[in-house]
Design a protein around this nucleic acid. Structure first.
Length: 140
DNA sequence: TAGGCCATCTGGTCCT
DNA sequence: AGGACCAGATGGCCTA
């Protein structure tokens, strides 16, 4: 959709220089706004890509759609939250409890191992998920 | 070919 | 006034 052109342009007649200048200003602003919007959406898509990298891919070769990515992130956070809550109930220290979880998931019987890298520590936390569209659960 | 997903354009609204 | 954000419209690409 192009911005409305001055009547003179539509009619192919002589333009008032002020009308033409106004029109050019509108077009220039619109083009700049489009560029900003494009950049904003690209930033949003970059964020989605980053989210896809840390969310379980569930063995899919096809990348998750934006909607699926958000759903998966939601489920993933809830699952991790559950792990933390469970660890607090355990008498062992959190570290020991997480090590225990890690050891129990080393078996090849878990086809979908997810890696989470902590930005602060050079360590990985492994867990396993099963995904059922709207919801997935931790396999323990 | 229909439906899903996506990128882009656009006008409106709100904020600084 | 200009920028950020949003939602609707539109067209392209891909897959079943």
């Amino acid at each position: 959709m192009k911005p409305c052109t001055p009547t003179c342009v539509d009619m192919g007649s002589e333009c008032d220089p002020r009308d033409l200048e106004k029109f050019q200003t509108v077009v220039r602003k619109r083009v700049a706004a489009n560029a900003r919007e494009r950049k904003r959406m690209q930033g949003l898509n970059t964020a989605f890509d980053q989210l896809r990298k840390v969310v379980p891919q569930w063995g899919q070769d096809k990348k998750l759609s934006k909607y699926e990515t958000l759903q998966m992130a939601l489920s993933y956070i809830m699952a991790l939250n559950r792990i933390l809550n469970d660890s607090r109930k355990n008498s062992a220290s959190h570290r020991q409890w997480l090590d225990l979880q890690y050891d129990s998931l080393q078996s090849e019987s878990y086809p979908c191992i997810v890696t989470y890298s902590s930005p602060n520590e050079n360590e990985c936390m492994y867990t396993s998920f099963s995904y059922h569209h709207e919801d997935f659960q931790v396999l323990t």
